[in-house]
Write a protein that binds this DNA or RNA. Structure first.
Lengths: 135, 135
DNA sequence: GTAGCTGCAAACTCTTTGCAACTCT
DNA sequence: AGAGTTGCAAAGAGTTTGCAGCTAC
């Protein structure tokens, strides 16, 4: 989280109270909060913060690539701090989002892009599934 | 396209003039049109069609799984007829969408979901890339 | 001091919906 | 005939923006 602050300052952003709060909220979130979620969590720490600032800040963080913006086919965006690279499996029954990584997949994606004549800049894989019966 | 009409009728939908037009437009589209795109193309064939009907029809087709709804991180939805299963590579410089299939990828996804204890229902993979210099 | 940031409210974009009229079956 | 469908316009959700005042640097 302190790292997030530093990276913002390095990028030339002014470290205002509101931004500090939003970064703290993001750093503490272990899920994939919507803008509204971030707003509510930030409000607990600073009553006066406005949702416009949350939108603006998340937009900036996304540009700086400090945060990843997701659209899980829900009609609104969700964010997460850009730490390790991973993908998501969405539980269709509960909406729960499970993270996973897979080295084989990473290599395969690079290869597919290269074969198509492209340099891979970004990508996203989302799986949507139902829990298998436990037995 | 005739197949699309049949599948709608089988599903219990009334085959109105507007729906016939929208299905025709979808059947003829080789890209991934937005709602607005479908609306404009449909209007050429039937001046009187409204965008509300396009939204409603695409929603129904999506429910019936005759169409796939995409959100390529653009803030609006794009649709395509659900024919063969494939994925997309988005050219970040031109916005062009390239389709591809990869058997190895299909298997890997099934495996990942299974290993996480899930039955894979749906999934989406999008690659974002820049064209490699030709040489 | 000043460029950048903020809250507020209004505006914007995409999508959905209530309703009265209409149309497939 | 009647349930389903339509166009219209209004409403809704999510997001962006103009502006005057404020604040980090």
């Amino acid at each position: 989280m302190a790292d997030l602050v530093k990276r913002c300052v390095d990028a030339g952003l002014k470290m205002t109270g509101q931004r500090r709060v939003i970064l703290k909220v993001l750093g503490q979130s272990e899920d994939h909060p919507s803008v509204e979620d971030v707003y509510e969590r930030a409000r607990v720490l600073d009553e006066s913060i406005s949702i416009a600032t949350v939108y603006r800040t998340l937009g900036l963080l996304d540009e700086l690539n400090l945060v990843i913006r997701h659209e899980f086919q829900e009609g609104y965006a969700r964010y997460e701090v850009n730490l390790d690279h991973h993908h998501h499996l969405v539980d269709l029954e509960t909406g729960k989002v499970i993270e996973f990584q897979n080295e084989e997949l990473e290599e395969l994606k690079e290869k597919i892009a290269r074969d198509l004549g492209y340099e891979l800049i970004d990508h996203r894989l989302e799986l949507y599934g139902k829990k298998l019966e436990e037995r």
